[in-house]
Design a protein around this nucleic acid. Structure first.
Lengths: 290, 290
DNA sequence: CATCCTCTGAAAAATTCTTTTCATGACACC
DNA sequence: GGTGTCATGAAAAGAATTTTTCAGAGGATG
């Protein structure tokens, strides 16, 4: 077999599973900012990847090249192809032209959403919410709708590891009143409510408010009716070239919040995570002894 | 004066009058197919231009470079500038926040992940998966782990609206064997398996394969062991300035897939969605008459 | 816990690349 | 034609890069 027709990137990917740790590290480094990162000398790229030069030699030989010079020659050809032919390989993500691949159009949209959302977002709001969520004395309740339920679950799963007293409400609204009953003053209800707002969210929010709970809402730019009852609201852009709305930026904020909370209570969290990991391991052992 | 701001091409042009015959010949050769022609060793470009290596050294020094390596380094930078990073690097995303605010750092990381993932991602893979999922004769099974379960659910919820025969496996692996039993040849198992890979995923994938199912895996750049059994694998970048991995880009691909599938079967989907919306409305009416 | 195996990088060896030196030849000017 | 200057490349010297060797680290296995 010859390496000719496939790109170096392809070859790396197809061999990725066979690579050792240091080699994977090197492959990462090469694919990062590919193919330019492979233009320098073997010494340079070894240093950039944090591995030794022999590792580079071994890997390129494993990939099927005669040696580093051979490897680099292929890379040069690709660079040439890429530069002299802008359509080749670089058509993805590049042009905004109509008819581009759905991935490109989506990427453009997401970029726009992210930028717009961050421009509108008050960092003070973000910081306040982060500090609210960091307060371990407050109970945390997560709820989402049909589509956003997954986001609520994602948030919940992480926060459950980080801190105690977290609860995920079923997306089925019939059980919500019971949860509301359990809320105490100072507890926090995190609501995900995006276009095609669920009517029951308002009832839930109202009930929670009556019990003295703080409310945080994730919604779109038009705003869930529940947002009016909220202490803090994140208005996220959700536009996508699709019949559906995009939750990507919402997830982005959720992840940033997770990190902010985790970071502000790291010492306590660390212990918790250790214990939890232990429990998971044990569960596995129980499940499949040996 | 430093060479920094001007391109190598500019420098050559501005010095062209001062060059000797052999040097002009060399300069021609370099400008022809610029800048790729300057990527090789000094020997190579000397040969290509039909001059001797000392001529090359003399010329690049005359142009103001320290030596050939210096000259080539500048060329590499230009190649990089020409090829890379279509996504503008933003110093600051959120307004009124220091560049080091977690939101800004997260935004940088996510954009890097997105860019890298799209660079590595083969659109053919994407299209193949989209067309697999569009085939309504195939049953669809979604499964995720502890953290990725939410992603599986998100994907599932949408696909359930778009097409029939979709199933979400519980994240609890004890029930997986039964699901595997139900799979038919041609069915598709969509696996989300990201760092801290779940051991049972491999068993599930193996069982599914035995039943003749196709496997699609969403994993990270290091690759779930289950990816080896998969027909198609998405290697998504998940790095974040956090103790946790980021699922944002994974969600991005999921959403793009949802749109691709929906789009390819829009007529059928439209009817389905209408009916479904009707059902949801009815449910609400039942629940809360009036 | 001993043994095997694989992976890894330090260091040496081999090779290639880069620069310098220098001899030759071309050309201009006296 | 003599002389000097400059351009040029062959070849040597010098410096790097690339490859190979090898020993130790670390992990798996019995």
């Amino acid at each position: 077999m010859t390496v000719a027709s496939k790109t170096v990137s392809d070859v790396i990917h197809s061999h990725f599973g066979l690579l050792t740790r240091a080699e994977k590290q090197l492959a990462e480094s090469l694919l990062d900012n590919y193919p330019v990162s492979g233009l320098g000398s073997i010494t340079t790229i070894a240093e950039n990847a944090g591995v030794s030069t022999p590792t580079v030699v071994r890997m390129v030989q494993k990939l099927g090249f005669k040696g580093y010079p051979d490897f680099q020659a292929h890379l040069h050809l690709e660079v040439e192809a890429t530069i002299s032919n802008p359509i080749a390989k670089h058509d993805r993500w590049a042009q905004n032209a109509p008819g581009t691949h759905i991935l490109n159009r989506f990427a453009d949209a997401i970029m726009g959403n992210l930028r717009q959302t961050l421009t509108d977002l008050d960092t003070a709001t973000f910081d306040s919410v982060a500090s609210l969520l960091s307060d371990r004395k407050r109970g945390l309740y997560f709820v989402g709708g049909r589509i956003t339920g997954a986001l609520a679950e994602y948030f919940f799963t992480h926060m459950q590891v980080i801190r105690p007293a977290t609860t995920l409400l079923s997306s089925n609204s019939s059980s919500w009143p019971q949860y509301a009953l359990n809320m105490n003053a100072g507890d926090i209800l995190i609501i995900f409510d995006i276009r095609r707002y669920e009517q029951e969210m308002v009832s839930l929010a109202t009930a929670a408010r009556k019990r003295g709970a703080e409310i945080v809402v994730f919604t779109d730019q038009w705003g869930s009716p529940a947002a009016k009852l909220a202490r803090h609201a994140f208005r996220v852009r959700i536009e996508a070239p699709s019949a559906w709305d995009s939750s990507v930026v919402t997830l982005f904020i959720v992840e940033a919040l997770i990190e902010a909370v985790q970071n502000s209570t790291w010492d306590e969290t660390k212990e918790r995570m250790k214990t939890l990991e232990g429990l998971f391991e044990q569960t596995k052992l129980f499940r499949k002894p040996g």
